[in-house]
Design a protein around this nucleic acid. Sequence first.
DNA 1: GTCACCTCTGAAAGATATTTTCGGCGCGGT
DNA 2: ACCGCGCCGAAAATATCTTTCAGAGGTGAC
Lengths: 302, 302
Amino acid sequence: MKEIFGSASGSSGSTPPAALAAKVRTLAPSMTRSMQRVAETVAADPAGCAALTVTGLAELTGTSEATVVRTARILGYPGYRDLRLALAGLAAQQQSGRAPALTTDIAVDDPIADVVAKLAYDEQQTLADTAAGLDTVQLGAAVTALAAARRADVYGVGASGLVAQDLTQKLLRIGLIAHAHSDPHLAVTNAVQLKAGDVAIAITHSGSTGDVIEPLRVAFEHGATTVAITGRPDGPVTQYADHILTTSTARESELRPAAMSSRTSQLLVVDCLFIGVAQRTYEQAAPALSASYEALAHRHRR
Amino acid sequence: MKEIFGSASGSSGSTPPAALAAKVRTLAPSMTRSMQRVAETVAADPAGCAALTVTGLAELTGTSEATVVRTARILGYPGYRDLRLALAGLAAQQQSGRAPALTTDIAVDDPIADVVAKLAYDEQQTLADTAAGLDTVQLGAAVTALAAARRADVYGVGASGLVAQDLTQKLLRIGLIAHAHSDPHLAVTNAVQLKAGDVAIAITHSGSTGDVIEPLRVAFEHGATTVAITGRPDGPVTQYADHILTTSTARESELRPAAMSSRTSQLLVVDCLFIGVAQRTYEQAAPALSASYEALAHRHRR
DNA sequence: GTCACCTCTGAAAGATATTTTCGGCGCGGT
DNA sequence: ACCGCGCCGAAAATATCTTTCAGAGGTGAC
């Protein structure tokens, strides 16, 4: 049977189509101007667009049928027909579940309580989007590779560097050999050591951070299994990635740099990786986890 | 606009399309045999039928396209196309109806898709809890202190160390002088330098991490304004804290160490601090933020 | 500044899906 | 057995969607 509601990224079937707005944001950078116009129109009023034919939507957005179809393709549907069907589903869902509709934009003069509420809401949204957009097949493949790896190297600079460290810390805890690199030179130097069976993971929101791509390329060329965690599934980094894990992109505002929501998103992905690996290597992971817990106990004051 | 989801019986537009089965029963008497076959098939599996073209459904029910269209008409839609759209909506609603019955505990044999869903849900929960439990007065006070600080030191070890670094990175971006310390000795050594007007922030989930409490105590005794970000507002760390920011504690399970949700919670608090400070120092922060953005641009490959 | 190149875009041709038409077929009545 | 009536599906007609192609517009090199 044809799968209509599955996320475009092809993941398993049960994904709710709620994440359309997120998908539009994620993919907007790889769209042309007129396609963006179409995508935005669709995201703004799914119900309305579901009632339109290709021609109708083309006229409404001031573009051509071809552009509408192209947009549908980018969004992950085989054609406009399927996008329209998904739109109808979305509309029905919206109708039953009433949108919460918070102006999630943070203003300079927002009282502190609003800041807390808006930030929390935003990050929750980011989590939902990420979960919806994550391709579980790719994730599973990455987990399998990690669980069997002799060694894992993780690359990330800037904010993503912290995420890389977080992942590394966790993997070390369950007995894997993992390293985080934020120094590009050392990263490349180490990447040369990798070989088939090893895993290299690059974390970059933009998907085009040279300092992170370079070591991944080297690892890739040396036969390691490579994973990219990025918000731009079409970015340069994916050239050298065997498995691509897409993080979601929230729109950023002046006061809320992209780094913030991308970090939330990346951490969720990284946690999923970790839990996945812990499951696969349970026999080894469980005792290792409690051992590390014990070891810390005495560092806590009475 | 064309009304798709309106009930066929013509009543007001907002009728939920759930009543399809009932409609089939009501109208069955006025249908011919083959039409009934079609109607029943559709009622039995809306989602499946939504994926079929007229021809497909005709074959499936062993009838012809014409009959399918006639059935759609009887059911109140202008044609098969619209019936199909409504069907898609119905399917989506059905799907969204289930699902929230997640036992948020992650088991060893959970499929990867469940892991993603449960983790996302858990972290969302954590965020909501944190936002609800955060004392905005204390937060406001901490922000005020930070915004005016000559210098800020942040202490955190282990997973909290990464949060400390995250905060530091952000504060540096808006022109504050901030340092993260994860080496307890260096932390203490530096804490001695602090004086009134400076800010020291300790991040510890347990509230009893000696390595973090010690530098905070020193800072406190040297007259700095001290802030504790902890999950245990009654823990030892709060002795030396002028302002206490409470993070939420989700219960941890075997596969899901506490570090995971405490990190989420801590990051939210830290983000709030950051945004708060950015608001207060907007004149200085805004240009600093865009400047740091510009500076990074060339590190991205075309 | 100009040229070559490349990408984006929409018009129109081509393919599919939906709707309509129309004649055949079965069924009940005479 | 024959007639009339209405259901049914094949195929034509139409609408909708998809693909192709050539021109417009922009970009970088020289």
